[in-house]
Structure formats: C-alpha cells, structure tokens
Amino acid sequence: MSDVTITVDGRSVAVSDDATILDACRDLGQDQPTLCYLENLTPVNACRVCVVEVEGSRTLVPSCSRSAEEGMVVKTDSPRVRLSRKMVLEFLASSVDLSQSTEEVHSWLDQYEVDVARYGPQVTGAAPRDGRHAGHHAIPTGLTAETVDQPVKVDNELYIRDYAKCILCYKCVEACGEDAQNTFAIAVAGRGFDARISTEFDVALPGSACVYCGNCIGVCPTGALQFRSEYELRQEGLWEEDEQTVTRTVCSYCGVGCNLELHVQDNRIVKVTSPMDHSVTNGHLCIKGRFGYDYVQELGDDLASTPIDIVLKRARSG
C-alpha cells in the first residue's frame, strides 16, 4: 500500500492510499465533528457536518468518506466550512431534540455558535409522523419552525424508540442491515423532511423482523434509541452516568467469545455494550449477550428494594 501526501490546514501528512480525509485529519490530531460516521459502519455521508474545503472542488466534500488523494489541499476551518457546519448543526438543533446527544455534540453547538432562535419557535407536541405521503406536506404558516417531535414508541420490554431525537443518520439502519445484523427490520421510509425510520407499515417491533440484538441502539448518537432500562432510569431521574463503571468481559452464552462492556450502577448492570475495536464483535451483539444478564441480578420482590431495582424491575415487565 503506497502512501499519499495531503495538506490539511497548511500541515502536510502522509497516509495510506485507502485513507480518507478524516483519517488524515485524525493522524494530525485534528478530529472533525461527525454524526453519521462510525468506524464499524459504511459511511453514508448524510449528515454533512464533517465537510471540508478541498482546493479545486466546487462544493465542500465530506471528509468521512472522501479518499485522500495525492496533493490534496484541505481546509477544515475556512469561513465556508464554518458556515456549513454551523448551518447543519443549526438545522438539526432547530428540528430535533438533541438534549441526550453526546457531550461532543453539545460542544460543537457552542463551537459553531448555533442560534436556533432565528428559525422561530419550535413546533412541539406534534402527532405521529408515520403516515405522511411523499410529495405532499402541510403548507407552513411561517409562525413556527417544523420539528420531528412525536410521541415515544414504547412497544416492548427491551427498547424504546424516541424519534423526536432522531437526526436520521442512518446508523441504526446500517447496523440492522448489511453492516452487521442483516435482519433489515427497519429502513428509512418516506421522503424529504418526512423521511423517518420505520418498520414495514409502521408495525410495532414485536410484529416486525426485529430480533432485539440492540445493535441499532449501540450506534445511535442522540438517545433516540435506548434500552428500556436506561430510558426508565432517566425518566425517574436515576440515571447517573458519572457513577457507572464499565467493565469488559466475555459473554456467558455460546462459544463465539463476544466481548461485553457491562455498565454497572449501584452493583446493577444497567446497560451492555460491546467494544467497536474488537475483531469478534466489531461492537455488535445478539439478544442474549445484550440483554440476557438478568439472571445475575434476580429482582424478586424481596430483593427489589432500592429505587433503581424497582425501576429496573418495572422496565423488565414491559
């Protein structure tokens, strides 16, 4: 594999010829904001928050998927780049509930001086969006800014889907599909602003092809998809991420050797993830590895005494 040399913000860097511009930036210690990009998924370059300016290119290019080419001159902080990133973040912040997005996302909102007020007051308390028909929409009054606000979907014991928090990054669709689970229970349906993540005919998850591997939740950057345990604890104000320990171990079920990260709060497993950089799982698990831990924390009536146990027990009973 030969190297190519590119220039990023005036600094030269040599990378392998299968590297992206983002890889080159990271090699230089200059990480770029990303939302739809994840190491274990195929880039869809849909969010456009990672765009950079490449000399000779008419438009900005997504750094997450564009290959580094010999001699490329890249700017990551030009006025054009800053404006586009600001606008992408502003568009999302004005239309989606980002309150449970990662800390990084919030730091970008500050960094790029996002101002959602200029779009007007946001529409809240909206009805479900699943029946909208491509090519038709209600004509706006201009008095409010449309959002994706909609009711939370709670239809099973293990997940919730809060699409008011969905930025449509496609990660869950990819993880459910060819990039990992190959179950294809969800897809993007509808078109334009009314595009949404959906099962066929919006059937509830228990009627869908979903196999509850949780790999969609593992890749969701905004909290739109959550484990029931996390959701219920957050609802009760008991979710304390700072107090949690994360321990890596091996799944107790079949012989494949999947690595688990047990998120433990008050000696209770409250979430299970998998390391993305491990070659067995690449961050993905099955239903047993993801959820089959309750047997080490039986929450019988006599044991379910602490607030956290009471919530976990309720979450489990659906």
Binding site: N156, E157, L158, L205, P206, C210, V211, Y212, S252, Y253, C254, I287, K288, F291, G292, Y293, D294, Y295, E298, R316, S317, G318
Partner: peptide
C-alpha cells in the same frame, strides 16, 4: 440457551 436457567431470567419479546 440450553435448559433456560440463564436465559429464562430476562423477558424476551421473541
């Protein structure tokens, strides 16, 4: 899983 002593502990929609 197997005789269900481990996997029987969680509620699976499947």
């Amino acid at each position: 899983y197997n005789t269900g002593v481990q996997s029987g502990g969680y509620d699976s929609p499947l």
